[in-house]
């Protein structure tokens, strides 16, 4: 292959990569051409070809910068937002599904719309703690911690949420602000009222969990850590799904039995804890029909 043919072949390759959107690879090929010309002292009539290749590298660099700097989360049309909300809410329970839909919108960067949805859920009294926590997360993701603080103060002043919920939220936002190096005075929430459920005291320490790992203490997989997505959480009790085909595993979890090693994963941290099987039941209807719903109460180590 002559030098000219080799250059043409590299050029063709670079052009195709570019047309495929493989800009890094395209740039590498253009550079390879320049290096080949220099290394082999290829005789050229003039510098036009070198200039043209340098121009192509510049154009590819522009494309790469454009991709790098493109907005990751543009505001989507309302119908697309609704579609996201519908497609990513899986629960048959209306309130849980509404939370899932709003969380999906937040995860896709549609924070303003998600905030509206969470606010509506709080007003309707639908899983208010989950909704409120996610509202605060939205404000923090939007890098507007002051909005999160204002929101929290409003809840405290208007007594829109229960005392237990407010205490939990205060701990949550306080941790988040501390991590961001923000010092602020948050309003105190009333002291624990005597007669309040004791579990609420425990609730304060349990974060919003996304998944848990449980070390199996018996059965053929004894010692294995199995991971489960948390499908629902109320205070320190989480629900996870065990597929019907893993009936043998489901049978290992007897109500009341202790779990000595539970790895808890939240957006904030991963930590080891203990647990107790609060209940297990076969799901009789809905998309998870036939699977098992396992409830675990997370206890302190």
């Amino acid at each position: 292959m002559s030098a000219k043919e080799h250059i043409q072949s590299l050029l063709k390759e670079a052009e195709i990569y570019r047309s495929q959107g493989l800009f890094d690879q395209s740039k590498e090929k253009y550079i390879e051409i320049l290096e080949y010309i220099e290394k082999n002292k290829v005789a050229l009539k003039d510098n036009k070809i070198i200039d043209a290749i340098k121009e192509k590298i510049r154009e590819v660099d522009e494309k790469l910068t454009e991709i790098e700097e493109s907005t990751d989360t543009p505001e989507l049309a309302q119908e697309v937002q609704s579609l996201i909300s519908n497609l990513f809410s899986f629960s048959k329970n209306k309130d849980t599904a509404a939370i899932e839909g709003a969380v999906a919108m937040a995860k896709f960067g549609q924070y303003e719309k998600a905030l509206e949805e969470f606010e509506m859920l709080i007003n309707e009294g639908a899983l208010p703690l989950m909704a409120a926590m996610n509202m605060l997360r939205c404000h923090l993701s939007l890098a507007t911690p002051e909005a999160a603080i204002t929101q929290f103060k409003r809840w405290v002043s208007r007594d829109e949420l229960g005392q237990g919920d407010l205490r939990y939220l205060r701990n949550f936002i306080s941790d988040q602000l501390e991590k961001r190096g923000i010092k602020t005075e948050l309003p105190q929430v009333g002291e624990i009222i005597s007669g309040e459920k004791k579990t609420e005291e425990v609730d304060e320490g349990v974060l919003d969990l996304s998944s848990i790992g449980i070390e199996l203490e018996s059965g053929p997989r004894q010692g294995d850590m199995v991971e489960f997505d948390v499908t629902f959480q109320s205070g320190n009790t989480v629900s996870v799904i065990i597929p019907s085909k893993q009936k043998d595993m489901a049978d290992l979890f007897k109500p009341g039995s202790q779990l000595s090693k539970v790895q808890c994963c939240s957006a904030l941290a991963v930590f080891n804890s203990c647990g107790q099987v609060a209940g297990i039941s076969k799901i009789e209807s809905g998309p998870n029909r036939g699977n098992y719903s396992l409830d675990i109460t997370i206890t302190e180590e």
């Binding site: 959107g21 494309k63 454009e66 991709i67 493109s70 907005t71 990751d72 543009p74 989507l76 697309v80 579609l83 996201i84 497609l87 896709f108």
Partner: peptide
């Protein structure tokens, strides 16, 4: 078909 892409035809969220 629902498609949400960026300027460079890269899928940003998902196609459906």
């Amino acid at each position: 078909m629902v498609s949400i892409d960026t300027k460079g035809d890269r899928t940003l969220f998902f196609d459906f």
